[in-house]
Structure formats: C-alpha cells, structure tokens
Design a protein around this nucleic acid. Structure first.
Lengths: 254, 254
DNA sequence: GATGCGGCCTCACGTCACGTGAGGGTCAAG
DNA sequence: CTTGACCCTCACGTGACGTGAGGCCGCATC
C-alpha cells in the first residue's frame, strides 16, 4: 500500500495528477489511513496503469473513463479513430519541423545580411526574373505594387515569407504526390493558398493573373526546372489545378 | 478592409480567435467602423499571418508576442529549441502510433476470436523483437531453444499451434471476463495451460520464467498494448494469475 | 416603416488537465 | 518536544480559446 508520493515516483506522474484522478473518480484509491492519507493497493495501481496507457495514446480522461466502465464500448473504433488523429498530428509535426528547419536555415544565413536578403532568399534566378517581369507587366501594374509592398519588408519578413512559401509548396507537392487529380478540391485549395499568399504578400493576385503565372510555370524553363525538380509532372499539374480553381471561382478560362 | 467574418474565412481561424488576439493585443485591427466593427487592413493581415506562422510552429502566443516586439530576441535559439521540442513530440507520436497499432491488432484478433491469435502474436512479435530478446536472454537459453524447436515445424504443426493458442487465450480472456480473481483456481489453471503450451512448443518454461513473462506483459508497452486491446486490465490480471499460480506450485515470488 | 435575418459587438462563464500556493494536520527521527 | 518531510483540503490560476446571452447594425423585403 503506497502513499501518493510513492505512487507518483513510481509511475512518474505528479501528486496533483493523482489528486485530480481521485477527484474526478478515474482512479480512486480504495483505502485511506485514519489521518486521511490516500493508500493505493495493487488493484489501484493497475487501474492507474491502464489509465496512463490510454492517456499516452492521447485519449481524453473522460473517454478513458467511458472506455473503462462500459464493457460494450466500441474499442476498435475508438482505437482506429485515435490512430487517424495521431497520424494527422504526426504529419503536421513533420511539416512543422520541415518549416522550422527552413526558418533556422534562413535565419542563420539571413541574419548577417542586409536588405538584399530578398535575392539571397529567392536565389539568383529572381534577379533575372525581375527585369523580365518589368518588361512584361510594366512598372505600373502588379509588379510595381509588389515592389511597393515589399519595399519596407525587413529581413525577418523575408525569412518568414520564404518559410511560408515553402510550406505552401510542400502542401501542393503532397497533394500532387497523393495522386489527387488537378481538379480535385484538395488540389484547388492548395493552389488557392498560393494565390492568397501572393495577394497578401506581393500584389492582388486575381484568378486570371494566377492562370498567367501557371502558364509561365510550364513554359518558362527556369520555373519548370524548379517545379519538375520537386516532382515530375508537377508543373503541368499545378497549372491545371490553377485553371480548375479559377473555373470554380466562376472565372472563364479558355 | 475586412471584417472578422471575412478574415476568419480567409485565414481559417474562428472569429473568437480573432477576438482573443485583439484582447491580448497580439493582432489589433487598426480600424473600427462607427458601429465598432473590427476592420482588418493589409498590414493587420500580414501581422496575423506571421502570428499564425509561429503558432503553426507550436510557439505559445506570449512567446510570439515577445518574438515580434523585441528585435533583439534570439530567434535562432528559439527556433532551435522549438525544433528540439517538436522532434521529441514527433518521436513520442510515432511510438504512440506503434503502440496503438498493436492495440488495434490485438483488438481485432481478440474480439472476434477468429483466425490468427497467438501464432501471429508470437510469430510477428518474436521476429520483430528477436534481437532484443536475444540480448535479454542470451542466445543459448530459452530463446535459442525455442528457435531450435520451432525451426522444423511443418505448416500442420503451426496450424495446430495456432488453434491451441487461440483456445488458451480465449480461455484466459473468458475467465478474466467472468470476474474471477487472479488467484482463483480457474485463473491459475488458465495461465498454467499457457505455461505448459510454451514448454511443449517453444522452450521449457518454468514458473519463474513465466513470472518474468508476466512482468513483461505489464511493463513492456508493446505487450501491454496487445493484452489491453483484448480487454482492459487483462495484462495486469494475467500477471497476477501467473504469480498466484507459481506460488501454488511452491515457488517463492517477491 | 416595420420586420426579418445575418453579421457584429461585449461581457462573462466554461473547458481540460492539471499547476501552484495557502493554511494546516501527521509521523518518524533526533 | 521540536524539526522537517510528507500528507490533507480548499481554491484560484493557466492557455487558447468555446459557447452562449443579450443586444446593436445594416440591408432587403413586404
């Protein structure tokens, strides 16, 4: 028969947690000393062990309670659902780690830099692209808006932007890899995130303009190389997804 | 200039979250209508975007606040620390998924009591953890004996073994479900059948060795998952039954 | 111009799984 | 008989919101 302190040490939980489980009736030690000290016997410890097992699996305490009291409870379904939940969490975590790696990377390379960070972050290709873009769009349109809006972005802003962009691209690649067709909701949502990010960060990007970008991703070898380097067939698929997304938004595309 | 509802839809957060961020001063829309409606402009949206970025990385809102207000903040360290934290979480999640898979496995095979049971359980688990078992028991002991003895089992032998194991586990589960205490004759007989089968089929399993197995069923999450998947509390109960059975046979157990 | 209806506002309490004291009793050792 | 480690019960705090209640705003419709 162990007291709270001993049980706490044994099972690696805090005393308060034991008090809490007692309060909510999840693990009630069946004995007390005359002075009111909780005393846990073997069966109490077993119950606690089972509770901790399910807690480790991420179940809520109330669900554990249900699970342990109702013998007809559908454990299989609960376990499968919990598994799905955990898998989603795991994927999310991996993406987060990826994104944070990028942020660290950018941070380490970005901090000692001045306001030219933009070129470093986006790579050398951006510099060449800038001239072309000016020719294509003129200096009074979207590109100008983009330059105005980004003029006073700090280094930090650029780092964030890069990580953000990579997260979006990662998502697009994942949807592509999963075999979703270009006109699936997942695909359209993924490319629309791209469009929205451009709108927020650079210039107001309409669906028509994004379709133009999409065409460029396929036709322009620099972009094509970048996207095909991520996954074969990605550039064309992304363009199709952009078109489908535009159509979904009621935009006419030929 | 967007209202809360529009921003909520755009950025996929709830209105309440926007209210909350306003309350704690994390993202304060810089305009209001005469009626008091919140109005978010581009800069507000950018700030929100940055906040959501760090939130995605798992930062606490207060830390995000610090991070965004203090230009001398050591972002690199924060990012690295967060990375470490996420990696630990990721590992934990993977272990959880593994354990839940075992639990699902056991559940599916245990509840309908159909085809595979002990065969798969022992077969696969033993294969998967063979190295660990060898380390634990050495290659000249029980484990090696088990391998030698099962090396030339025919398919027919395995089928018999499987049926035998199923019957034994079914019996154990039934006794457990009937509410018999672990030191009842029924419980002790059921687990002794288990011991005798191991002795016949795998290696000479003394009471002491079975007690070791019992401890492992409770302590090792992989085994615990398997048994808890069959019935909540089964692992600990089985261990106690094994101990009681050993005592009945005159073996001293501490 | 009254009426609806969807969207917005501000309190303000609820949630989950405990953390963190305050104030005080208990118990074995010195 | 005191000391210090351990235990008890309140009871409020935490983080990141969820969830109404009660009421104003603005536009369309009858």
């Amino acid at each position: 028969m162990l007291t709270v302190g001993a049980v706490a040490e044994l099972t690696n939980v805090t005393i308060r947690t034991l008090h809490h489980y007692d309060e909510i009736g999840l693990v009630r030690p069946r004995h007390r000393t005359d002075a009111g000290y909780r005393l846990y016997d073997d069966r109490d410890l077993e119950r606690l062990q089972t509770v901790l097992f399910y807690r480790e699996l991420g179940f809520a305490l109330e669900d554990i309670s249900t699970l342990m009291s109702d013998p007809d409870f559908d454990r299989g379904r609960a376990l499968r659902e919990q598994r799905k939940h955990l898998e989603g969490e795991s994927h999310r975590l991996e993406r987060m780690i990826q994104a944070i790696d990028d942020a660290i990377d950018a941070h380490e390379r970005g901090i000692p830099m001045d306001n030219e960070t933009m070129f470093e972050v986006f790579g050398e290709e951006q510099r060449a692209y800038q001239r072309e873009a000016e020719e294509r769009w003129g200096d009074s349109g979207a590109w100008a808006q983009s330059r105005r809006r980004t003029a006073d972005y700090t280094d930090q802003d650029w780092l964030e932007l890069k990580a953000e962009s990579e997260a979006i691209v990662t998502e697009i690649v994942e949807v592509f890899r999963s075999g979703e067709p270009a006109d699936s909701t997942a695909a359209m949502d993924a490319v629309d995130a791209h469009r929205q990010q451009i709108s927020r960060r650079f210039y107001d990007c309409s669906h028509e303009m994004q379709v133009g970008l999409g065409e460029m991703y396929v036709a322009d070898p620099r972009f094509a190389a970048t996207y095909e380097g991520l996954a074969v067939g990605l550039a064309a698929w992304a363009r199709d997804a952009i078109v489908a997304n535009a159509r979904r938004a009621g935009v006419e595309v030929d």
